[in-house]
Structures are given as structure tokens and as C-alpha cells.
Amino acid sequence: MIFLWAFLVGGAICVLGQICFDVFKLTPAHTMTLLVVLGAIGDGVGIYDPLIKFAGAGASVPITSFGNALVHGALDEMKKTGWIGIITGIFKVTSAGVSAAIIFSFIAALFVKPKG
């Protein structure tokens, strides 16, 4: 069942992005930025966690979950260490995504000639 919801919710978030492209004529960068901010606000008001529980990867794979994870790190760390945690904790959860993207993109640039 979680697979079905992952497909539907993930697809729906992508349609939201496509509507930003086509209807509101936003550039990809603006659309991604908007979605990330939406994800951050979504976690701030506490609706993103239930969505992840409900849709699994459908909510954790789209870029909105990046905003969610940033807020998550900040709030978790704030719980432990007080207000300074907002600064020290922001990248705690997103580390996997950002570091993986940097490291493998760099390795790819070392060994691969661009195509097309």
C-alpha cells in the first residue's frame, strides 16, 4: 500500500512543479526554490512528518523533503542544545544528500566527458 501512496503523492508533488513551470511560467530554479521553502514551512507547522509516514518515499524523495530535513535538523538540535541549535543543526540531517551529490558529481567530473 505504501508503494501506491508513494507513487501518487510523489507524482502529485511533481505535477505541482510542472504547473509552476507551465502555468506560472517560473524557471526551474524558482520552482525548486519555492518547493524547498514550502517543504520547510510544512515541517515547521508539523504537517510534513505525517505526510512522510503516510507516503514514504513519495514525500521524502521530492525536493520538498530537503526543506523538511533542514528544519528537522535545526529543530532537533534546538531541542538538545537550545537556541544555538538552529545554526548548528541545520545541515545535520541533509548531510547524506548534499555530500553524496557533491562527492559523486565531482568524481563524475573527473572521469566523464560531457555528452550531448
Binding site: 508503494f3 508513494a6 507513487f7 502529485a12 511533481c14 505535477v15 510542472q18 524523495v61 521530492p62
Partner: peptide, 12 residues
Amino acid sequence: FIVGGAICLLGQ
């Protein structure tokens, strides 16, 4: 919808 859903399905 289809491609985005499929990527999330793969993620799941």
C-alpha cells in the same frame, strides 16, 4: 506525474 511517481516508487 508518471515519471515523478515512478522515481518515488523506485525510492520506496
